[in-house]
Design a protein around this nucleic acid. Structure first.
Lengths: 144, 144
DNA sequence: CCATTTTCCTACTTTGTCAATAGGAATTTA
DNA sequence: TAAATTCCTATTGACAAAGTAGGAAAATGG
């Protein structure tokens, strides 16, 4: 029941980009330095966010990344699902049909469904903008 | 963000024991057969529940395991924490002081706290008795 | 055109955990 | 004393997590 570094880094990444007020692209190097994360690892993570449509990239000098939508429209769920995969606590309640043929006789399915809903309710309603509002000092969100 | 087989098996184990109405001890072999789980693996899992005070064991022929408390007093949280360890989504919000020195500047700590609370609220209020009530047919709760 | 800066792409490595499997010791009962 | 049980520890194979590494492709500024 853990969110891995990949997902946590992705969130910090998005918060970092969202916090820049000038419209200039932010480079991996910049973010990696500010967040104290391996830039090569960040590269792989942001590639997921890029192909997932949450950021867009600009190559070459002065290049970098920009959010593809306003932070109010990017939820924590979007970021975490791209990086972590599904966040459901067990396979049986995953989005599509990974479902268990004995579901009708299962004593725990309701528990998993309730857990799944509680988690989704939070991550699908919290946006990057919400997280930025929590950040006390710009450029200083270092939590693991 | 997954509950491993260990935790899921532990829950099925407890439900299985709780479902027996005669006061006789239930052997590993019995449960493993009924639940279609490796008995050697179950052994290791029930050892955690035993040393954690949720079941008690009786050796020798006709031996086995019994719940140490009524199912109404055993929560899902007790079972999962013994088998899975902490269920908090990130180290920073774990029960004791694994805490992050930059917490004051962290944009995501509130998110993790809310997730943690949502999960705890469910698993600490749902009991084994509640799960047994969900079970449609005795001896037939096979979900992974 | 060219050097530099950036993203892009793929492969590799290391470490640890999950999910068992295995074998036998200790205890209790009949 | 044989059988049934729990108890204890070690080992294994597969997989994922968390990076590390090296270079190709694209854009810019001079």
């Amino acid at each position: 029941m853990k969110v891995s570094t990949k997902g946590r880094y992705a969130l910090r990444l998005m918060i970092n980009i969202a916090s820049r007020t000038d419209g200039k692209p932010v480079s991996i190097k910049d973010i990696a330095g500010a967040e104290n994360i391996s830039d090569k690892y960040l590269e792989q993570i942001i590639a997921l966010l890029n192909s997932g449509g949450l950021v867009r990239s600009i190559r070459g000098p002065q290049g970098g990344y920009l959010l593809r939508k306003p932070p109010e429209e990017i939820t924590v769920g979007m970021v975490l699902r791209l990086t972590e995969g599904t966040l459901s606590p067990v396979p049986c309640v995953e989005d599509e049909e990974t479902y268990c043929e004995r579901e009708a006789n299962c004593a725990t399915i309701n528990l998993w469904r309730r857990l799944n809903k509680a988690i989704s309710d939070i991550i699908d309603t919290t946006t990057i903008a919400d997280l930025c509002a929590n950040k006390p000092e710009a450029g200083d969100e270092y939590c693991i």
